[in-house]
């Protein structure tokens, strides 16, 4: 199927999202809640583009809009810039402590606003929740609604589901999730975990429940090998080299 994005004609498969098609063609559309690993969420609306079919023109979230017909897409019009500037202004107001938002707020020369809570970094993109779901832990979700909405564990308590993998914090674009690693323990979401030590380099790299979880999920027998990702890579490389 043929679509035009910013005047460039592209051949795409039906069902592909506008965002994917654009990125494949090297056209950048800004996003906040999109991750290749989780697909489009349609949460942040940063990826809005203008879609023209016949004489009809409308704005859609490109990360969730599947291409099903011949359309003409614009990704950088003044109207879109204005939409994005508004989104950034609002998110900056919510999360003034986030470096990412500080940068975007400047880049887009947004009008002046004062942050609501100077300590807040979270922009409610839900990437952490997605990561937790994907890991299969389901320890965090969004709670409450409206201006009170935030990410947390049920009852703001230590969750029996949490395995301390910190996938949420690793995915978070704003560094809003607090992880403390100290004395061989990792603390996250009101819960403290004993960390695993790499048998080769001695560095801490994960938690005990993570290893159990991975073993269970992949039906692997992992038990005799506790290496950090770095040492594991080296070991693999060495094995490959020896085979050759």
């Amino acid at each position: 199927m043929k679509v035009t994005i910013d005047g460039i004609e592209i051949e795409v498969e039906t069902g592909k999202t506008i965002l994917e098609a654009a990125r494949e063609a090297g056209i950048d559309i800004p996003t906040l809640c999109y991750s290749e690993a989780f697909g489009g969420q349609g949460v942040c609306r940063m990826c809005m583009v203008e879609v023209k079919t016949g004489n009809r023109k409308r704005f859609v979230a490109s990360c969730t809009y599947p291409i099903t017909g011949e359309i003409e897409v614009q990704t950088k019009t003044p109207e879109l810039e204005e939409i994005r500037r508004n989104i950034i202004t609002l998110l900056y107001r919510r999360a003034p402590n986030s470096d990412l938002m500080k940068k975007l707020y400047q880049d887009y020369s947004c009008s002046e606003v004062k942050g609501v809570d100077p300590e807040e970094s979270c922009i409610m993109c839900r990437l952490c929740v997605k990561a937790c779901e994907k890991v299969g832990a389901n320890a965090i979700s969004t709670v409450l609604r409206g201006t009170e909405k935030r990410v947390s564990t049920p009852f703001d308590e230590e969750s029996p589901e949490c395995i301390g993998c910190s996938a949420c914090a690793d995915t978070c674009p704003t560094g809003a999730i607090r992880v403390v690693e100290e004395g061989g323990r990792r603390e996250i979401w009101h819960k403290s975990f004993e960390m695993l030590r790499c048998e080769k380099c001695g560095g801490y790299y994960s938690t005990l429940p993570v290893r159990e979880h991975v073993t269970e999920q992949l039906e692997l027998d992992y038990a005799d090998d506790s290496l950090c990702p770095n040492c594991r890579r080296k070991k693999l490389a060495k094995e490959v080299a020896e085979v050759r």
Partner: peptide, 12 residues
């Protein structure tokens, strides 16, 4: 369903 789903709805 995970507790997170229930709690999310109950607080929404």
């Amino acid at each position: 369903a995970p507790m997170t789903v229930i709690f999310s709805m109950a607080t929404f």
